[in-house]
């Protein structure tokens, strides 16, 4: 097992796993606290449209996916801020239309035999240096945002109506959270795939929620828990030659069940 650590792709995978986990801990906490889980799911699936556009036009995948996911996030922000009814319909619509665009564009790309499964279930073992730079930059940006605006974000997440009364620009922070969620979804797709993104963003948070007494500690604890899950999942994936995304999510889900069982027994 230890000799595996000397391979560069394994090192990259481990670094990516931990980076994405820490980011997911922070952003996942915000998504759960703001009750945006379904919304984030919509963005994750819509992001496939970006993958299709990137493949079709030949621009880098991360770039295409990020732009498309952010556009989807802005659209959702616009819809949810201006109209509280029928939000579900719009989320479902974005979810499906994004995927449809992706599938058709991949069909239309001549000679391209895309490995659809690697986007659906992740390809963490194929992470390269550029991917790591992208993830690292996002991590730094998120740390800056959280440091400078922690209290505003806390206020908006806990009670947005009251936050607005206190003069906080709720729409700005709501949109900011959605954009960061979109970018997080894009990098999490690399690790667990778009179908499983939501599980990675929410399972560690559900556990951390019970163990924390502040938003900050929830972010930190979810990040650490997610790192442990990803690393263990990665180890299973490598040892038994199974799909990494699925094995990470199963490790997470089983741990969640164990945690719930233990907290019931207490």
């Amino acid at each position: 097992m230890l000799e595996a650590l000397s391979y560069e792709f394994i090192q990259n995978a481990l670094i990516a796993g931990v980076l994405v986990s820490l980011i997911s801990g922070i952003i996942g906490s915000l998504i759960v606290a703001n009750r945006m889980v379904f919304l984030a799911g919509g963005i994750a699936h819509a992001a496939y449209g970006g993958i299709g556009i990137a493949i079709f036009t030949g621009i880098p995948i991360f770039l295409g996916t990020s732009l498309f996911a952010v556009a989807a996030a802005l659209f959702m922000a616009f819809i949810t801020i201006n109209q509280r009814e029928n939000i579900d319909v719009f989320i479902g619509l974005t979810w499906a239309v994004g995927m449809a665009i992706g599938i058709i564009l991949v069909d239309l790309t001549p000679g391209y035999n895309v490995d659809l499964l690697s986007y659906l279930f992740g390809s963490i073992l194929a992470v390269n240096r550029d991917d790591l730079y992208f993830m690292g930059s996002l991590f730094v940006v998120i740390l800056f945002v959280i440091t400078f605006w922690y209290r505003n974000i806390l206020a908006v997440s806990y009670d947005s109506e009251y936050a607005a009364l206190s003069g906080i620009n709720v729409k700005f922070f709501y949109t900011l959270i959605l954009i960061l969620s979109a970018l997080t979804v894009v990098i999490a797709i690399k690790v667990v795939g778009l179908i499983l993104v939501i599980a990675l963003l929410s399972i560690p948070v559900y556990i951390a929620q019970r163990l924390s007494s502040s938003l900050f500690s929830m972010m930190l604890i979810s990040g650490l828990i997610a790192s442990v899950f990803t690393t263990i999942g990665l180890w299973f994936s490598y040892s038994f030659n199974i799909t990494s995304g699925a094995s990470i999510i199963l490790v997470s889900a089983l741990s969640l069940m164990l945690f719930m069982l233990l907290s019931k027994l207490k």
Binding site: R151, Y158, G167, S214
Partner: peptide
């Protein structure tokens, strides 16, 4: 009774009151 699962302490909720929000740096 909103957001009852939200991890926040009573004193933090109080500090959300208007006057203190301008300074928004961490802590």
């Amino acid at each position: 009774n909103i957001n009852l699962n939200f991890p926040i302490k009573a004193i933090e909720v109080v500090m959300m009151g208007k006057s203190s929000l301008r300074t928004s740096l961490f802590g």
